[in-house]
Design a protein around this nucleic acid. Structure first.
Lengths: 237, 237
DNA sequence: GGTTGGTCTATTGTCTACAGAAGACAAGTG
DNA sequence: CACTTGTCTTCTGTAGACAATAGACCAACC
């Protein structure tokens, strides 16, 4: 049995920061001061800075040279980018991955789904979020396309960051379980083996509710994004 | 007139490393030792490490905890991933960006193309590469989709890294100019405004020559990648 | 002779300290 | 009273030093 290497401070700091972002403890637009975090996390600045570089690359925080780092604040155009790109990546993943060639890959989906269910029933809000990300990643991973999976994961995290604010208020225990049920259905459809059916299920997957009244909550209304929002609302879902 | 902030060491180190990778001074599989580079680049280790984290995120170098960093060595499956994903991103970019809505964006394409041409005629091999990347990025950027452009750029750099070895030998001065001519033609087709025509031009863009005999040069022959290679060679290009 | 154990070196992981820039604030000036 | 200017504080950028680990090499033992 192969023992695993102890996680590096960079890794721990990255995960801790990610959790602070997903939980909303760090909100979009917030300034991220290095010295504050070193105290909170018990890490010195160099590894923390490396972790921040990683999250910067993922688009979760934004660094301005000599001015500090901020939690990325998405514009309407950003949301347009995220949603359109995510949809395209999903499409490709389904076409490549469904029907599933290697049953072993399904195991990962089931494992994530089970953990998701456990967290949902326990009312563990943040845990549900993390396992939902892992579940979706594992679904995309059915394609056997690592880069596709990573791109998808990155996009997904950005989207969650944006949903952060109103999520906490909205997510009751029932809706957590509802999410799980929806994911369970998705996996069933995938196992049935029809790419078209999966596309349909994903199209109606219904995580677009956060778009309601989005224009008032964010800035950056580009022509593209406004046109897109109009199309989406006219039922092109 | 707004003066620009002096570039940080992290930025400089990232660019220098990138150049070492593109030029083949660092070859796939090579070990990257921090202390050696600090001497060569005249930077201390913390900013160098941050730069390496950035390149790790881009997939250009691979870090093994407590074992050091290596230039990423691509498998056939990796190449399959890169080519398929790149194609998909191109497709989306063309559909979103052609015909061009904002003429201002074309200016960036033309500027990059001009620089590309100048480097090609000067026989500046590395410069051509850099400007070719910028040209392609600017074309994808016609879509106004920043994330799409960045994903494409990352994928493209990975591909260049893989082509590195045989590139230097193969690229004569004429072929440099040929590349430029091809790019010029592409931009003309784009300006003509027909997405289908652009798709056709891209399909026959002809940078697939490096796939000849690729199986012998790299490892990692997954079922997906072998099937894909067969399809490509049967003229699905 | 092959294997095991120990030591030694090279390299990574982390921390502390210092230099320099950006922004805040207050005092002076029109 | 508004605006500018100088200073001060806070924070980032970078450097250098120390601790700890992995792998190589050599010797001793089975």
């Amino acid at each position: 049995m192969r023992i695993e290497a102890p996680p590096s401070m960079v890794q721990l700091a990255t995960e801790a920061l990610m959790r602070m972002l997903l939980s909303g403890k760090l909100q979009p637009g917030d300034r991220v001061v290095e010295n504050q975090l070193t105290q909170e996390l018990g890490v010195s600045r160099p590894p923390l800075r490396e972790a921040m570089r990683v999250l910067e690359q993922q688009g979760l925080i934004t660094q301005l040279p000599r001015r500090g780092a901020f939690v990325t604040q998405l514009t309407l155009h950003d949301i347009y980018e995220i949603v359109t790109l995510r949809r395209e990546l999903e499409r490709l993943a389904v076409d490549l991955g469904v029907p599933v060639r290697e049953p072993a890959r399904l195991q990962r989906c089931h494992a994530a789904l089970d953990r998701h269910g456990a967290r949902a029933h326990a009312g563990d809000w943040l845990g549900v979020l993390e396992e939902a990300v892992e579940f979706h990643s594992s679904v995309i991973g059915l394609s056997g396309h690592r880069r596709l999976e990573e791109a998808y994961r990155s996009i997904q995290l950005q989207m969650l960051l944006c949903m952060g604010m109103n999520r906490q208020a909205r997510a009751s225990d029932e809706s957590l379980v509802d999410d799980w049920e929806r994911h369970r259905r998705l996996l069933e459809v995938i196992e049935s083996g029809s790419p078209e059916a999966v596309h349909r299920e994903l199209a109606g997957h219904g995580d677009m509710a956060f778009l309601d009244g989005i224009e008032e909550r964010v800035g950056g209304h580009s022509p593209e994004s406004l046109a897109w929002l109009k199309r989406v609302r006219e039922g092109d879902s």
